[in-house]
Design a protein around this nucleic acid. Structure first.
Lengths: 338, 338
DNA sequence: CTGAAAGCGCTAACAA
DNA sequence: TTGTTAGCGCTTTCAG
């Protein structure tokens, strides 16, 4: 089919040296004479030689690769986190293998199994849907850090996350402070992150004496889900004057539904999202949100992972990052305040 | 550090059979007795055995992996294309290694070099920034297909793309048909895709006798770039009544700038994008656009790649997909038509 | 159906 | 400084 690739052996004989010398030279060892080094460099260039990563990985038992699982490539949140991961991983001279599981536990399992077969030296899970048992099984085999979740604990599972309960409270309190009372929460579905944000909402409502006004609509973390949930909220006898939506992407969908119903944002309905995606800053959208330091979370995750690769048995670290309310134009006091 | 992983050897001795039998069993060969197969399965499960992909790749000289380079993980266009690629690749029992080069030719080179060291059996480049020479060099080493571009030809470089010139014309003609005359193009910068779309714009303007009205503003393919370009366009003495923007993401930025300037979309300024990202369908944004069949392009790319992996020397295929104008709410006749 | 032996491309002692 | 010798874990002839 295709001519075989040149090997280290071919380079050696063309340069008139031995295999091992080439190996040393390739990795920039100082114990190679300048003459040999140059001859080897030249021979490699002539031949178009490329080291075979599989062979190297096998021989020195180090793949220099880390595996990254992301929940959903469509949500820009993950692109930001990945930027942080990538820069850190590359700085260490490692490569990353990136996979998605489409929010399906079985597929996530399968993808991670593949990653382990490739001998990745560590795993970063950016918002997975694994069962606790399954996650612990992976973490037992290879250093693992989880980003955006800290609900599953295990002896050697590090986490980087924000406090979603506090964030949910922050968003809700903002709406309460503006004078809203009928505040709906468009929930993010059956996952811990969404549940925590909902809990934060409930706590803020209760604390403000608005527990009876609390109204949670089942939604999801996609634009479509947010759209549908908002429609449902607006169809109620006493539609809300404000919505706290489980994440930014769903909030965009919710805004669409509000506007489509003939209402204005924020004039008739205020909307708050969660995450802090760059898109939300666009004047068109201008989304008030609880912003997480996404890129930093990615960097922290990679740093944590390398720390654990060096010292595998250290106890689990749970890094909590600060999220902040970013007030933009999608929230305002209700028409008839109070 | 960590206890060594069980190998095929460990499985064999625990199951009381030979290494090679295990190897056969692992790959589901029919020439293994049921008894042996079960013993092996059990032993592997007990041990938590995982095949070592590096070793397998080395031994059978097949990595069963294809490399994918994407221009920018932040643009949802690429997530859609990737969906198509992934589903097809998985269906073939292959894995994918995904990398980004941040639109930087040198980094793209480096990432692709890494991919080749991992012995990927093929390459899919989703909108690269490589030089022709560099692209041809990679294609000479491994089957390669390029998605969204067809400007660089080479003996064995397949392409999957739409006709950006035609698409640009389509968008512009739509605005002309609505009655616009001062139509600006917010260009997408120094890359072939953007240049083709611009050419389509120019051709449509010329054909309508509006060549003198043609106004091209230098922009880029990001929201920020679109925002800046639109501001510039609006600052001119005779601001346009319509804009054709190089892609959807930049169009969102442009809409933001228009609205921020106190003008309405489409009341004062119509905006057309390009790509057909899902987000554009949201009622809030409601973006008229030239939509490419993104997921299908991804699938086609993977299919083409596998075809070439089987028959490496076949001549280059250039698959052209149809893009269609999707008229939504961001375009309308100008205030004072004509 | 099963097992022994050789080798994939590379690294890693160890000698020379 | 250089070359030799063993493997890394797996697949693959080729004899039993």
């Amino acid at each position: 089919m295709r001519e075989p690739r040149p090997t280290i052996h071919d380079v050696a004989s063309r340069a008139g040296v031995s295999k091992s010398l080439v190996s040393l030279a390739m990795r920039g060892s100082p114990k190679v004479s300048d003459a040999s080094r140059e001859a080897i460099r030249q021979a490699a260039a002539d031949l178009g030689y490329r080291p075979n990563a599989a062979a190297r990985s096998l021989a020195d038992r180090h793949s220099r690769t880390i595996g990254v699982l992301v929940l959903d490539l469509h949500n820009p949140v993950f692109a930001d986190i990945l930027d942080g991961i990538q820069s850190e991983v590359r700085a260490q001279g490692y490569s990353t293998m990136l996979v998605t599981g489409a929010a399906d536990p079985d597929r996530e399992q399968a993808e991670l199994d593949k990653l382990l077969e490739f001998q990745v030296e560590g795993l970063i899970l950016v918002s997975h849907r694994l069962s606790p048992a399954s996650l612990r099984r992976f973490a037992a085999e290879v250093p693992t850090v989880v980003v955006t979740r800290d609900d599953i604990h295990g002896p050697r599972i590090d986490t980087i996350s924000n406090d979603d309960v506090a964030g949910g409270t922050l968003a809700t309190q903002h709406l309460i402070a503006l004078g809203h009372r009928r505040i709906a929460h468009l929930a993010g579905g059956d996952n811990p992150v969404a549940r925590h944000r909902e809990q934060g909402y409930r706590e803020a409502m209760a604390e403000a004496g608005l527990a009876d006004n609390a109204s949670v609509i089942t939604g999801g973390l996609t634009d479509v889900a947010g759209y549908a949930a908002a429609r449902q909220a607006l169809a109620e006898p006493h539609p809300p004057t404000a919505m706290f939506v489980a994440n930014d992407i769903a909030a965009l969908g919710a805004i669409a539904a509000v506007q489509e119903s003939g209402r204005a944002v924020p004039g008739d309905v205020s909307v708050v999202g969660y995450d802090g995606i760059a898109l939300g800053a666009l004047r068109t959208l201008n989304l008030t949100t609880v912003a997480q330091p996404l890129e930093r979370m990615g960097r922290l995750a990679a740093q944590r992972l390398f720390a654990r690769i060096v010292l595998p048995r250290q106890r689990a670290h749970h890094v909590l990052v600060e999220s902040t309310l970013v007030v933009r134009g999608s929230t305002a006091p209700p028409r008839s305040a109070g």
